[in-house]
Simulated scan of single mutants.
Amino acid sequence: MTLRVGILGGTFDPIHFGHLRSAVEVREYLKLDELRLVPNATPPHRDRPGATAQQRLEMVCLATEFDDQLLVDDCELKRERPSYTVETLEALRAELGCEASLFLIVGWDAFCGLPGWYRWTSLLELASLVVLQRPEHDQELPEVLKDLLAARSVGDASAMNATHGEILCLAQTPLAISATHIRSLIGEGRSPRFLLPDSVLGYIETQGLYRPLT
């Protein structure tokens, strides 16, 4: 049988239940053999993370330690330069071979900004895209992405059988959780409990992360 692997990249600063719920839903809906969480090292499109790369990796490991189908891949943390998704997909292709089906998971906002990504037109040569739609999204798509959706969209996960090149827009359970909000709560001395795993919260408290500088 063809190996089916999902890839969910992110800063994970910190990882929270929004990330984890999306990962589980995509894994089940697409019947993936595994889903890899890939922490970014130096994201080229975002501000520098508040936690170090090692701390963010350790938080992702803690969050996934009891689920053997959620794997942590530190390939981007080994690069001493900005991490580009297309290079991660190329590395996975080299590791898993041309017969594996790869599914790159992105949020709606990230998909809307896809033309600004490094070598973005090569992404679909390496993987299919799973776009997580938020029910309240109202961002207008660039024309080039409208054309791409018209040409590559698949209506249902059961029809998503190619090794790469397809796009599926997938509704997800709405969880209004963001890492920015969690960091803000901690910075204000408030509790983010029940927005992220207790193991991750305990790590944040032990490490003194996201507290205001005094």
Rank of each mutant, 00 (worst) to 15 (best):
D67W: 04
K146N: 01
D33G: 12
S128V: 03
Q207E: 15
G165Y: 08
R27F: 04
L20S: 05
V86N: 06
R190M: 11
E28P: 02
T85L: 01
L132A: 09
D67V: 04
V144D: 02
R119Q: 15
T173F: 03
D13F: 01
G187H: 14
F12T: 00
E65T: 07
L213C: 10
L124E: 11
E205Y: 03
R27E: 10
D109I: 08
A23Q: 11
T163N: 14
T64K: 07
T52L: 08
E140P: 02
R152F: 02
P135T: 06
L123D: 11
V106A: 03
A171E: 11
E90C: 07
P115R: 08
A150F: 01
L32E: 05
V106Q: 02
G9S: 05
V200K: 06
I186E: 07
E28R: 12
E205P: 01
V26P: 10
L20D: 04
E34K: 10
S153K: 07
D156I: 01
G189L: 09
S22E: 04
N40Y: 00
D74K: 08
R36E: 13
E143L: 04
G187W: 13
L149V: 03
L132N: 06
E90L: 12
L196I: 09
R27V: 03
D73T: 08
L209N: 11
T214D: 09
A23T: 08
D109N: 12
T206H: 10
K31A: 15
A41Y: 00
L102Y: 11
P39G: 00
I177L: 14
E136P: 00
S22V: 15
L62H: 08
G202R: 13
C61D: 05
Q69C: 12
V144Q: 07
E34R: 12
G97Q: 05
E90K: 15
R134Y: 04
V144F: 00
R134Q: 09
G113M: 03
T88G: 07
C61K: 15
L141V: 02
I186S: 08
S199N: 02
V154Y: 06
R48S: 09
L104T: 06
E80A: 14
R21S: 10
A23N: 09
I182M: 11
D68Q: 14
P192I: 08
Q139N: 03
Y210H: 14
E205R: 14
V24W: 06
P174S: 10
L124T: 15
G187P: 14
E136C: 04
L185K: 12
L57A: 10
A150T: 06
Q207Y: 09
P14N: 13
S158W: 00
I186F: 06
V26D: 07
G10C: 10
A150D: 06
G107A: 12
L57I: 05
P82W: 00
G113T: 02
D109V: 09
E99T: 13
R152S: 06
F194G: 05
L196T: 07
S191F: 03
G116W: 01
A110C: 05
N161H: 02
L209I: 11
C98R: 15
C98S: 15
S22R: 08
A151Y: 00
R211N: 10
